[in-house]
């Protein structure tokens, strides 16, 4: 039975008699449930999910390659194939971490780097959202602002550093501003583009029902772009970590970028490995949090 035919049935039923309504409606419910299963894709007709869709397998499967890498690393470094000055053993990296933690530096570095990322990301993301909305909604703003912002975006991130240091010194401000610049552009670009591409038919329907200005924005345009805003924020967060290291490599006295730079100058390859691993873990963790929000938003708004 096709969707259309039971629609017809239930229309008629609703008009003519009660019993048929029940039949038609039940029918509708089951076929919709079936439709959902089909659209969910991975679910097989019997209701059993395929292995790659099971939660435990996704977690365990994602850990396989890191564990293999760790094993290979351990084996290569202990077998003497590569000198320890080039490739420290996992144990050395762990000891470096314990050593830094005992001096109270590890927590401090992680905290200060995370703080810089979050503040820069918050400012850059917020300004990106605002300007992206203005440029995406107003043709005039698009004409006036888009070329300039496009040119600023074309400047490589490292080119800002000398200027920011001259203007804002080597304190927190210059670093946070650099990170904000990094977070700004993905949000600005994606938000303005997706606002411009909201389904015209939906906007027209909104207009036909008397919505305009702020009400139209809040009712139609904003909900329509929520999923893309979240993927923009996710991208911006990744950019923020990238720009953090750029900022901290140049002029800083603490943070993970400083740890990298300092260890490079002192030949502490174990700490270089530690800093890289910490950046990977922190970046992945923060990304996963935003990804969870994104998944919720896609379910809710798309």
């Amino acid at each position: 039975m096709t969707d259309a035919s039971h629609t017809a049935l239930s229309t008629g039923a609703a008009i003519h008699d009660g019993d048929a309504v029940r039949v038609a409606v039940n029918d509708g419910t089951t076929s919709i449930a079936a439709g959902r299963e089909a659209s969910a894709g991975p679910e097989t007709p019997s209701g059993r999910r395929r292995l790659v869709d099971r939660r435990w397998f996704r977690i365990a499967g994602g850990a396989i390659i890191p564990l293999l890498l760790l094993g290979t690393w351990q084996w290569v470094s202990t077998s003497g194939l590569v000198p320890l000055s080039q490739l420290p053993s996992p144990e050395m990296v762990w000891l470096a971490a314990v050593d830094l933690a005992e001096r109270g530096l590890l927590g401090l570095y992680v905290a200060i780097s995370t703080q810089r990322v979050f503040i820069g990301f918050a400012f850059g993301g917020a300004i990106g959202l605002a300007l992206g909305a203005i440029v995406g909604l107003s043709r005039l703003a698009d004409v006036l602002l888009a070329p300039t912002l496009g040119a600023i975006r074309a400047v490589p991130s490292l080119a800002w550093i000398p200027l920011l240091i001259l203007w804002f010194g080597i304190a927190e401000d210059s670093k946070v501003i650099l990170i904000a610049i990094g977070a700004f552009f993905p949000v600005y670009t994606i938000v303005s583009a997706s606002l411009r591409h909201v389904d015209r038919q939906l906007i027209e329907a909104g207009r036909a029902f008397g919505l305009h200005g702020v009400a139209l924005f809040a009712t139609v345009q904003l909900p329509a772009v929520v999923p893309s805003v979240l993927s923009a924020l996710r991208l911006a967060l990744a950019q923020s970590w990238l720009f953090l290291v750029a900022a901290e490599l140049i002029a800083s006295s603490m943070g993970l970028g400083f740890l990298l730079n300092d260890s490079g100058q002192n030949g502490r390859i174990d700490r270089i490995f530690l800093a890289i691993i910490l950046l990977a873990v922190l970046g992945k963790l923060t990304d996963s949090v935003v990804a969870l929000v994104e998944r919720w938003a896609v379910r809710r708004w798309a």
Binding site: D3, A4, T7, S10, T11, A13, A14, G28, I32, R36
Partner: peptide, 18 residues
């Protein structure tokens, strides 16, 4: 319009006629 049972459904969960 005969959709009382579907008031809480999203548009993608109903048929074209609905």
């Amino acid at each position: 319009v005969g959709l009382a049972e579907f008031a809480g459904h999203r548009p993608r969960e109903i048929s074209g006629g609905m």
